[in-house]
Design a binder for these strands. Structure first.
Lengths: 125, 125
DNA sequence: TCCTCATCTGCGCGGATCTTCAGATAACGT
DNA sequence: ACGTTATCTGAAGATCCGCGCAGATGAGGA
């Protein structure tokens, strides 16, 4: 990574430098930012997005249902679900030979809702 | 893309098929899912995440302040801000030779907050 | 126990994206 | 008007990641 501190003239004698120092202290470190970014990145894929919204609507679906709902091969769905599950975005439940998936918690649901609002999707329900 | 519909035995005579059809109808189409995913993907990067949380804390920062706050070269920050701005995640305001950036709206702030809660960061404020 | 079905896993390719460097542009102070 | 400073832009390289295929695994039913 390139150098940053040594030759910055902007904040040198700037009245903001104090404030910047505070901000800098409160900015998530690499570890935390990595975790946060990983969660967002997980949602940042068309296929996963579709699947998650499908779960948001349906509450609970098995792999083959998801496959039918979002028009994606079952193997791909399975793979995607593994990813989502590993990150704690979804939970699963086994019933016979089927495995049912659902959104893990209210936070995830809230993220999906807020995002849909932001992008201007009205009348979601 | 592989075939999906024709040879699925799972939902064939399944009582769920009705429900699945409903879900399928409500799942965001490619266009909408693309928009949603794009927003999440935008937040799904360590550098951008740091910058956004910095803005969440500070309210408003210029490029050089951000550079100092997150320890990233100014040129890189500038480029990142262009991306964020193009997607409407941040707004900017020019004041002399400085350009100040801020989070665009409450939705973005909410996304950041909810995500931080989800990842188990207590005492956010 | 054997066979079938739903789901899972490993591998390799193609595509998208992040990063950085170097130069261009804009605005200020003198 | 000139030099300096802050910010922006464009392009190339390297990296990462998702995608689909084919075979393996696990659970039921007869």
């Amino acid at each position: 990574m390139g150098r940053v501190l040594p030759l910055d003239g902007c904040i040198g004698g700037d009245p903001q430098s104090q404030r910047v120092a505070l901000v800098r202290a409160s900015v998530p470190d690499d570890a935390e930012a990595g975790t946060l970014a990983a969660l967002f990145r997980l949602l940042g894929d068309v296929r996963r997005t579709k699947i998650l919204y499908a779960l948001l609507e349906a509450g609970e679906l098995c792999v083959c249902d998801i496959s039918a709902a979002v028009q994606v091969p079952e193997a791909s769905v399975s793979q995607t679900m593994r990813l989502l599950r590993a990150s704690g975005v979804v939970d699963n439940r086994r019933e016979g030979r089927r495995v049912y998936y659902r959104l893990a918690d209210a936070h995830v649901r809230m993220l999906l809702d807020v995002c849909r609002e932001h992008t201007g999707h009205e009348g979601s329900r």
